[in-house]
Design a protein around this nucleic acid. Sequence first.
DNA 1: AAGGGTTGCAACCGCACAGAA
DNA 2: CTTCTGTGCGGTTGCAACCCT
Length: 552
Amino acid sequence: MYRVKSESDCEMMLQDQMDSPVADDGSSGGGSPHRGSGPPLKKGPWTSAEDAILVDYVKKHGEGNWNAVQKNTGLFRCGKSCRLRWANHLRPNLKKGAFIPEEERLIIQLHAKMGNKWARMAAHLPGRTDNEIKNYWNTRIKRCQRAGLPIYPASVCNQSSSEDQQLSGDFNCGENISNDLLSGNNLYLPDFTSDNFIANPEALSYAPQLSAVSISNLLGQSFASKNCSFMDQVDQSGILKQSGCVLPALSDTIDGVLSSVDQFSNDSEKLKQALGFDYLNEANASSKTIAPFGVALSGSHAFFNGNFSASRPINGPLKMELPSLQDTESDPNSWLKYTLAPAMQPTELVDPYLHSPIATPSVKSECASPRNSGLLEELLHEAQALGSGKNQQPSVRSSSSSAGTPCETTTVASPEFDLCQEYWDDHHSSFLNECTPFSGYSFTESTPVSAASPDIFHLSKISPQQSPSMGSGEQALEPKHDTAGSPHPENLRPDALFSGNTADPSTFNNAISILLGNDMNAECKPVLGGGITFGSSSWNNMPHACEIPEFK
DNA sequence: AAGGGTTGCAACCGCACAGAA
DNA sequence: CTTCTGTGCGGTTGCAACCCT
């Protein structure tokens, strides 16, 4: 690393840089290559002397015209290097040191919205440079990859959801979700309408969301504005359980499902969560502040959790840059734990749709981070907790995620998962009967699940019997295979969820159409190889939300 | 203690864009 | 309109510090 030279290095001063110029290759780089025939420009770490020269120059001449620095100061640095040095290290008001939790949250959130637009992200983080943010993010990506955790905390996506709801104004069901972070940072929050969302199909690649949305559409599509964001609809599903006033009959249906699930043994919570029905259990939620991250980022898990036993391993390195908002999460509540001020009273944590009080915030998941910040450390902490095989307290119903807590679902090879598997083997028939109203709309019926989370797996188990386009449940559990029986590469991608593993593409499209407000048919089309494209977008060239014209 | 592997940051590289000539 | 120049941005690399065995 180019560690900042100690102050003793100041002694090297100018002479040092003069003595050790690195032959420049004309690397002023990019659009401003060094074209002169002067002395070779130095590369590598800046010395204090060079810094002093540059600072002095900027004080006198101001920023800009960086190529003139060399001419005016004798500094053997290209203008580009000077600009970079100034911008990243020398300019005033630069924050140094580690990112504070609030900054981390903001970075995560911004990245979810912008993708790798570091400069734009830096604009939201005064005193931070794009390079810093980029490095931080890359580090974070690596950590998440190692830990097998999702890049985006579920709450970040839910933040987008909540923000979207607030901003859209099209979906006014009385929620008044706090949004301190948003308001405090003047974030630019694109309105992810359902149409917009189409351009981000990865965001759909998470079974809990899908199930949530499917249920939402089943139960409450009528009251969902078409202009509501996709996540709005997800959120609606999350509130359905609590919103019996809206559709009491259907709410009863859900209650019935949950009741049947509750018949399961003490581990039923795990099963429900693994089945992705946790979002239906918000009324029992005590854990809006529990699990730092939801696990509904199933696709992300698939990406990063190479230990996912139920799926084919992901072969080879994956480019970790993910399109923005790829992982919108279905849990409408978990975001709260990020946005609520620390002083927020517990009562304020009550979901607007939640009729029953929330358990005391003191009920903490064992997975909760020591810092309770929901940030990178928490991810790591969760990973540790997962590795240690810790479980949540049985009495704690975690509904922070539509798919359960990370403790229970991120480590798919965990005993919990096996337990769920066993439960399924034992009870799936009766459960499926109970779940009949939902499964018909479950996207998992056409979803290859090899790259998905266990949540997706279990959801897939729900649907086959109900699905006209899916075979047996066992088939549903199998990743999509090509004719040779080998894992289809598409299965290794989150968007494999939409890879059209249905015998009837029109059915699939119709389902998506229902999901996304009936506009899918125009935008979504099957592609060769079983994938689905959304307009011109694909996984690899998916534009970030900010690149979508509406967001600019 | 030593050596190899990993981490994380600073800096570089190359492309793209805008404005001036 | 074309070319040149400056700047911005995102991806990548280099390497010292740190960690692990």
